[in-house]
């Protein structure tokens, strides 16, 4: 740890526990819609599990969230515009990414060991559909407009995949709000994450909606 990491960004961001609950609730709503979209694409049930909201310094991005920065993951990243400017990242451990594309293309589980370019396109499309479901539910609820950019895919070390989405917001603020939802399919311990990183504009809308300003 370096000494700079003891800063309490939650205090700087000035969020109460109730406000953090509101952020988690938003994550639950968005991710539930995304999980439904994913379930219908894969023709089986994907459940959302735990949602947590984090307010962290951008230098803490690798510490608290998901473990080892050298883990190989696939990340589908979309910039979100309309009301404000936000980032949305869907992350899967690499093993689960292979299961996901096998399932998507109706191949027996375990067929893939690497991703073909067709698999990569499919992942982007899955990301896009889930992001639209996530963002539409938020936009309706908060009465704002949110559009995702075209999706970008990176298959690499977790640390490296996280950096761009976090730094892009870090250019504008010192701390970042990350709403993280885990989704699972129990049978194969399939796991993935949604990370929504709203900017202050949407954060304020959320607080107004839940009347926790």
């Amino acid at each position: 740890m370096n000494e700079a990491k003891s800063i309490d960004y939650e205090k700087i961001a000035n969020l109460t526990d109730i406000q953090k609950d509101a952020l988690r609730e938003i994550g639950n709503i968005g991710a539930a819609h995304a999980a439904t979209a994913l379930s219908s694409m894969l023709k089986e049930t994907i459940m959302i599990d735990v949602t947590s909201s984090h307010i962290i310094g951008i230098e803490d991005m690798q510490n608290e969230l998901f473990g080892d920065p050298s883990d190989k993951v696939a990340g589908v990243f979309m910039q979100v515009t309309g009301s404000g400017k936000h980032n949305l990242l869907m992350l899967f451990p690499f093993e689960n990414t292979l299961q996901l594309v096998d399932k998507f293309f109706n191949r027996p589980m375990g067929t893939s060991t690497e991703l073909s370019s067709r698999d990569e396109s499919a992942l982007c499309e899955i990301g896009n559909v889930c992001a639209c479901a996530y963002l539409n539910s938020l936009a309706n609820l908060l009465d704002i407009t949110l559009f995702p950019s075209i999706p970008g895919l990176a298959v690499d070390m977790l640390g490296a995949v996280l950096q761009y989405p976090v730094l892009e917001i870090g250019m504008r603020t010192d701390y970042i709000v990350i709403i993280q939802t885990e989704f699972i399919r129990d049978a194969d311990r399939f796991k993935g994450y949604f990370l929504f990183m709203p900017d202050d504009e949407v954060k304020d809308q959320i607080m107004k909606k839940f009347k926790v300003v």
Binding site: Q62, S70, G159, A160, Q163
Partner: peptide
């Protein structure tokens, strides 16, 4: 670590994992 730095003398190995942008 991200956003960190270290200075060291012989013999040491310094390592940063998962550098993207």
């Amino acid at each position: 670590e991200v956003g960190g730095h270290r200075v060291a003398t012989n013999p040491t190995v310094l390592k940063s994992v998962g550098i993207g942008s």
